[in-house]
Amino acid sequence: MHQKVDSSLIKRKVTKNRLFYFIFILATLISLSFLVILIYRILSQGIGYLNIDFLRNFPAPYIDKAGIFAGLMGSIFMIAITAPVSIILGVSTALYLEEYAKDNKFTRFIQVNVQNLAGVPSIVFGLLGLTFFVYIMGFGYTLISGALTMSLLVLPVIVVASQEAIRSVPQELREASIGMGATRWQTIWRIVLPTSIPGIITGSILALSRAIGETAPLIIVGAAAAIYTIPDSFLSRYTVMPIQIYSWTARPQEEWQYVAAAGIIVLLIILLCMNAIAVWIRNKFQKRY
């Protein structure tokens, strides 16, 4: 006896499957289209205002005189402080957790703590910086306050990325090194770090590119929009690119939007370069074991 197959049921199932296939593709395309529209809008608005003078000029009250030079240099100076501080602290923390720490409650506490710090809104780091660096340490609204606040902000990201890189170094390499008579630190310095450095650098660059685009905490710790000099010490007033973009966006006259868009193009190009370098390092140097 053959059971009769309900062909209409199957047909319905197949149609439903096809329908949802298109819905899912459509949703993915809509998500991607946001990126396309965003990039297109910014390019079409800003490209006309982008020229050498825009890169060389300080902020100015007139549209054709305004430039992003102070912001560009401010961002570079800030990263020049943030990068060493956050990478040294971050990699050291990761090394401690992965290579030295015993699996006890305190280690797990540090681990959970790092994860939770990564989820704290950036503006709360701004409040920390305002109380601690600006007022208690007495740095005021200066470059060093902003750079140290940023270091703490990106620290958890660098720790997590470095931990993953260090964890991916196979245990056999460590055992071989110890077996040859190397000490623990020699093993770390000569075997673990060189093997994991591509992953660490990639993670660090990605974290620092987040710091370059960050605006809110720097408003809180006093990066100003109207800065007509380049920082000449840790205790100089400063501005950064996102702050400039924000101040241009916030102006009511429509023409300033084009200046803001030109600033955004410069910012996005720098972020794109950093990301490209990070991906290149990962693909070129990372070994899989």
């Binding site: 993915t28 998500s31 991607l32 946001f34 990126l35 529209i37 965003l38 809008r41 910014i42 608005q45 990605l206 590119s209 987040r210 370059i212 685009g213 960050e214 605006t215 809110a216 996102p242 973009i245 924000y246 966006t249 939007q257 803001a260 868009a261 955004i264 910012l267 996005l268 972020l271 990301n275």
Partner: peptide, 24 residues
């Protein structure tokens, strides 16, 4: 191809999104 492109959206600075929201 699609996943990394989608993740670019997560790397765009929020000030740029703010500009996009206000002007577009």
């Amino acid at each position: 191809v699609i996943k990394p492109i989608l993740e670019i959206l997560a790397g765009i600075p929020t000030v740029v999104y703010g500009f996009f929201a206000l002007t577009f």
